[in-house]
Nucleic acid binder design. Structure first.
Length: 198
DNA sequence: CTTAGGATCGCCT
DNA sequence: GGCGATCCTAAGC
């Protein structure tokens, strides 16, 4: 009986559905609160990547680096960027597909002291405004690659209101520039880069 | 304000 | 050998 109740309540009010295309998940995550060991904030910028997407790490099939992308959804795919930084993705769709959402920026809300300890003293605007900065502030490294987003140290709260969402071309890629799969919380001051005007 | 270069790892050609 | 889903610093306007 209890199980029936839970599955009825489950749909979207209490958790985000990762078993859908990455573009939908990227939109659904805008305004959600993500924390890692209690440190985190409101997601204000995401990008979607898919298997049939020349800009995606999964485009050419599984490798040791992108293996987690081909695993079950709602897990963390962490990769090293430019040999230096770490970047955090959420795996989408079904196991074996190879889709994900890159978390590009959050608005810091909790654990700001810990963030500053990891990143140094700098304006609040810059602490988590970019995938590499956010990963450093939240202590995301390869050690968290493959972890479930529904278990500690991760915690995700779905948005509690309907935010206006902007979209535009993804950042830092040279392929599939025409696909507008970058999403942002309209009016946020915490973007890694501004969105092009209409 | 904009631009240029360096750091440095995994995977592709 | 080359090129990124990046960021920081320094120099130029």
């Amino acid at each position: 009986m209890v199980l029936i109740k839970i599955s009825l309540m489950n749909s979207s009010a209490h958790s985000i559905d990762f078993h859908v295309p990455s573009e939908q998940v990227a939109r659904a995550l805008i305004g959600a609160i993500v924390t890692v060991d209690g440190v985190g904030g409101r997601i204000v910028e995401t990008e979607a990547y898919d298997r049939e997407d020349p800009a995606s790490h999964s485009y050419s099939g599984p490798t040791p680096r992108n293996a987690v992308m081909f695993g079950p959804p709602a897990h963390a795919y962490v990769y090293r960027s430019y040999g230096i930084h770490w970047c955090l993705n959420f795996v989408c769709r079904e196991a074996g597909h190879g889709a994900g959402v890159l978390i590009r920026a959050i608005e810091p809300l909790t654990g700001i002291d810990a963030m500053r300890q990891r990143r140094g003293l700098e304006p609040l605007k810059l602490l988590c405004s970019g995938p590499g900065r956010m990963a450093q502030a939240l202590d995301i490294t390869h050690a968290k690659n493959g972890m479930s987003l529904f278990e500690a140290p991760f915690h995700i709260e779905p948005p509690e209101e309907a935010y206006d969402i902007m979209c535009g071309p993804r950042i830092g890629i040279t392929k599939a520039m025409d696909v507008p799969w970058r999403f942002g919380l309209a009016g946020s001051k915490f973007f890694s880069k501004p969105f092009p005007k209409t």
